[in-house]
Design a protein around this nucleic acid. Structure first.
Ligand SMILES: [Mn+2]
Ligand SMILES: [Mn+2]
Ligand SMILES: [Mn+2]
Ligand SMILES: [Mn+2]
Lengths: 219, 219
DNA sequence: ATATAATTTTAGTTGTATCTAAATTCATAT
DNA sequence: ATATGAATTTAGATACAACTAAAATTATAT
């Protein structure tokens, strides 16, 4: 597996997750900042290797074998993100780009030992679950703030975008993973929200609310 | 800089260290397990980039700019080796191959933070000095055991080969970096040595002695 | 149903890093 | 001084991963 192949697999895996149907050539190209023709070439290669299912013009989906590899890359990526934050004191908006490189280092032993060194974490710095060695992914009940209503309460457990810009914006708002959040008021005109977190009142735009996951309190 | 370019620079740097004259195409090819024609191609590229000095048929040597880059790769390699041993509990014969991959990760910040995390180590697990950020390399007075005579005493401070085979051989002999070594007797017939370390008597072949560095006691 | 537009694939090119085989240059030994 | 062999370079080929431009297919709109 070359880094290029791994990156394609990972992208197809992620795109397949959200839509739950065949992933299109264009969406892969857009996501990876490359051209559709390049994507077609790579898809053919991955298909010949049995890592994806592919029918011309019909999009692509993960095979079992491809899924396993994609999950192992995601696992490595997220473990490295934890390492960078917990051990090297990176900020949560800085870890992704470095992890993009570290995830391609090939060594089973390295990842096992890293996992142990970190105390077998189950979530990365952005609240995303770390797949187990065998490929199991913990699924947490979480909803976007944009899908919540006035009065809903819960815990800030994840972000939808890991872009530097958005994460630094959350830093400015003093919002941290694990914070208890209460929705004071939802403005139907523009879908903006008034929320309370750490005793402070904060206003969030509709766009911001679409990138914040909370775990609603159990009854 | 691509990983390939970095590996060539590093190899040329290391080969230039030992001989102190122009490095030959064949020696690079042998070291990198590649063909001389491939080496010529890469040398041309590095030369055009101003990273090495090169005259056809006359071998190659580092430029100041190339030297700086080579040292930064060596620095990264050795810091990662320390990390793998100190933090992840790898054995000293396992760290090199993984460090070969990690050394190509591009992030100034990562290396600075790793360096701090490790407590600014000055030597790697094999006793080799870690170049400073500015490219300074600590030079330690050390001599090969093979160059010593009966009665010489000193401290085991480095190895000449980092091959798994040799390092595991030292493990079997219970010889560890930092051990005090005394040469009891040098057999002139085959250059083998009788030494004492940790109170134990050990016999070393001439070949083994050529791969062990000690720092001779000051008077 | 057919024209038009969007998506996807194909054909042909480029740059990198490797290789083999052949040509060139250099070192050396008579 | 010249021949021989070793070292090095050149020429031409292959694999990978990208690109542009053009062709093929599918989706959509009248
Ligand atoms: Mn990430
Ligand atoms: Mn993440
Ligand atoms: Mn090493
Ligand atoms: Mn080392």
């Amino acid at each position: 597996m070359t880094p290029a192949e791994e990156n394609y697999l990972k992208t197809i895996y992620h795109l397949g997750k959200v839509s739950n149907q065949a992933v299109t050539t264009n969406s892969i190209a857009e996501q990876m900042d490359t051209k559709p023709s390049s994507v077609t070439d790579m898809i053919k290669k991955l298909s010949e290797k049995g890592l994806v299912h592919y029918k011309k013009y019909q999009g692509v989906s993960m095979s079992d074998q491809g899924n396993k590899i994609a999950l192992s890359i995601v696992r490595k990526h997220r473990l490295w993100e934890v390492f960078l934050m917990e051990k090297l004191n990176f900020a949560w908006d800085e870890v992704h780009d470095v992890a993009e490189q570290l995830e391609h280092v090939q060594s089973e032993k390295l990842i096992e030992k890293l996992d142990r060194h970190l105390g077998f974490p189950r979530f990365d710095p952005h609240g995303d679950p770390i797949p187990s060695k065998s490929g199991k992914v913990l699924q947490v009940e979480k909803v976007l703030l944009s899908a919540c209503d006035t009065g809903d309460k819960g815990i800030f457990v994840g972000v939808n975008s890991s872009s530097t810009e958005f994460l630094q914006y959350l830093d400015k708002l003093n919002l941290v993973l694990g914070d208890r959040i209460e929705i004071l008021f939802k403005e139907s005109f523009d879908d903006s929200l008034q929320i309370k977190a750490k005793g402070q009142k904060v206003t969030l735009s509709g766009k911001a609310a679409m990138n914040i996951y909370i775990q609603i309190d159990e009854l």
